[in-house]
Amino acid sequence: MLQVVVLGMVAVSALAVVAARDPLRQAMVASIYGLVLGILFFVFAAPDVGLSQTVVGAVALPLMILLALAKVRGGEE
């Protein structure tokens, strides 16, 4: 039952990531999507993958997106 709920959350989050057209908003939604995927991996008895996905998808990836956006939006003097 828990697995069905988390799978539903994954499907909804993926749709939310694509539907957020502004990259700044999308970075935040991508962080949530990474966290939900990490929860999915923990529920599926995969702790190594869950740890990896949580750290990478919720922290490192949105960070790179934000840094690229900062350069593109505000880089020119």
């Binding site: 993926a14 057209r21 999507y33 995927l37 991996f41 993958v49 998808g57 997106i65 956006l69 593109v72």
Partner: peptide
């Protein structure tokens, strides 16, 4: 940038 994030979503479906 939106395109690159959607590409990472496609990758996550394989996981």
């Amino acid at each position: 940038i939106h395109l690159v994030i959607c590409l990472s979503v496609v990758q996550s479906s394989t996981y």
